[in-house]
Structure formats: structure tokens, C-alpha cells
């Protein structure tokens, strides 16, 4: 269980995030929704311990994140950023093996067991055939799947993803979405997915945390939170939110912008 209790944070100056509380249950797939600049990324960074809250606290189980080393944290929580631009042209296998870092000693090299974990991560993300390719030569969707594989190689029970589909075209978006749903279902990986893509959230998330202006607007089960009213409050947009039979989940169709 990962919990944030009345967390506030500012990058020097006014709070970017004010009095935010969330609970991430084991095995859940939670979406953090909201417009650009609402504090989604900041919340994610607080949840994985990259940022320390100015007020309130974040706990993993009953341990505050502040009391854990980066190494310990990295064995429990892995993160997939929006985009990854390595300065050097690593191979896919090297990128994935970097996920093993928190499990290796200072001078330890990856052994057969680590390679096995990496291979499984590549399998799980359908990227085994790319293992020997250079990361920089991959397409956007392939890159994102490799980064997810690298996070999986970290063998954590929890995965935080920050806009993992933002830079992908429609085909790759669906591909990554179904990958996440499958990993959550089959591997029981707890996931927190920050996105402004309402349909992505609707398609994979069990519950949603909806944010606006650094505060939580609503939280709860997807079908209860994702309503026309929420969309209006979030984006000032009049939208139809309906269950789509063929898709098998809620869909949001924006109709028009509401002025004033």
C-alpha cells in the first residue's frame, strides 16, 4: 500500500500541489487525470520519492519514503517517464539490464539470473526481437515498450507511469494500453498511470484520481468519477461520456468548449 497523506509541495515559491491524499492499493491500476500543469507529474515524483514533500508525508506500507535509501525504494517502485533520451547509444539489452541496478552490489556484474529477468521483461513487453538493437534506432512505441521492460526488470511490485503514451500515435497508444492492462492482470503489478488522455484512462484504469490546479477534484472507481460533469470541471468542455459496447469501456467524446 502506497499512501500520500495531506501532501503539499512547491518548487520554491507557491505550492504546485496542495493537501493531496491518495491511497494506492496493491494490485490496483489507478489513473491520475487532469489537464496539463495540474500537478500529475509532481504527484508521481512525490510517490516514487524523487521529490520530498514540503508538508505531509508519503508512506510505503508503514515506512515513510524519506527513511528509505534510493536503492531500497527502487526495489519497490519503478517509474516509466514520458520520454527517455539517453546521451549514449545503448543497446536495448543494456537499457533493460539497467533495471537490475538496485539488486546489484557496487562492483557486481549482472549474472545469468539478471539476464533471465531481463529476458522475461523483454518477452512480457513483446520486445525480445529488439534485444540487440540500438535503443536510438527504435520507433517511439518500441522505445516506450523497452523502457517499460527496463522498469519491469527492476522486479518491483509497483510501477508508476508518467504520460507513457503522450508522444505515441494511435496504434502505439492502444498497444501500450493493452500491454499495461495485461501486465496488471497477469503479473499483478500495481500501477499508477498519470495521463491527460481520458479514453486511455477509461480503457485501463480501475480507479481515478482527478486533479485540477494542484488539488484533488475527485477520486474513486472509474465509472463513478469519469462523468460529463468531471470533464466539464476539468477542461471546460461539454462531452458525452458513454459506455462503448465494442470497446468494452467508457468513452469520452468532446462536443464543444463552454465559454466563461
Amino acid at each position: 500500500m502506497l499512501t500520500a497523506e495531506s501532501v503539499s509541495f512547491g518548487y520554491g515559491g507557491a505550492f504546485t500541489l496542495t493537501d493531496v491524499s491518495v491511497e494506492i492499493a496493491p494490485g490496483s491500476l489507478t489513473g491520475v487525470l487532469g489537464p496539463n500543469g495540474c500537478g500529475k507529474t509532481t504527484l508521481l515524483k512525490l510517490l516514487c520519492g524523487v521529490l520530498r514533500p514540503d508538508r505531509g508525508r508519503v508512506r510505503l506500507g508503514d515506512r515513510p519514503l524519506g527513511s528509505m535509501t534510493r536503492r531500497e525504494l527502487a526495489r519497490h517502485i519503478a517509474v516509466v517517464p514520458q520520454e527517455t533520451h539517453p546521451a549514449f547509444d545503448y543497446s536495448v539489452m543494456e537499457m533493460v539490464l539497467m533495471g537490475r541496478h538496485p539488486h546489484l552490489g557496487a562492483f557486481e556484474l549482472e549474472g545469468p539470473a539478471d539476464f533471465e529477468v531481463a529476458r522475461q521483461a523483454l518477452d512480457a513487453t513483446g520486445t525480445s526481437h529488439l534485444a540487440d538493437r540500438r535503443y536510438m534506432t527504435l520507433s517511439g512505441g518500441e522505445k516506450q515498450r523497452v523502457i517499460i521492460a527496463s522498469a519491469l526488470a527492476q522486479a518491483t511490485e509497483m510501477l508508476l507511469l508518467d504520460e507513457p503514451t503522450a508522444s505515441l500515435d494511435l496504434g502505439y497508444q492502444l498497444e501500450v494500453a493493452s500491454l499495461l492492462a495485461r501486465l496488471n492482470r497477469e503479473r499483478k503489478v500495481t500501477m499508477v498511470l498519470a495521463t491527460h488522455d481520458l479514453n486511455l484512462a477509461a480503457s485501463v484504469c480501475h480507479q481515478l484520481v482527478v486533479m485540477r490546479g494542484g488539488r484533488i477534484l475527485a477520486a474513486g472507481a472509474t465509472r463513478e468519477v469519469l462523468t460529463g460533469k468531471t470533464v466539464r470541471e476539468l477542461y471546460d468542455v461539454d462531452a458525452d461520456v458513454q459506455f462503448h459496447d465494442r470497446a468494452g469501456h467508457l468513452t469520452v467524446v468532446p462536443v464543444k468548449r463552454i465559454d466563461g
Binding site: 516514487c48 524523487v50 517502485i77 519503478a78 517509474v79 517517464p81 539497467m98 541496478h101 562492483f107 527492476q154
Partner: peptide, 25 residues
């Protein structure tokens, strides 16, 4: 230098990524 290579691998991928992979950036 002997202690640095693996952390540097991660650091060159990105400071935040390195932090979440367990590097004391």
C-alpha cells in the same frame, strides 16, 4: 572512478530515471 561506471550508465539515461532505478544522483 572505479565506483562510478554503473551509476554513470544510468545518469546518462536521465537524472530522474537514474534516481528511480536506485542511484543516489
Amino acid at each position: 572512478f572505479a565506483f562510478l561506471p554503473r551509476p554513470l550508465n544510468l545518469l546518462s539515461v536521465g537524472a530522474d530515471t537514474a534516481a528511480t532505478r536506485g542511484v543516489d544522483v
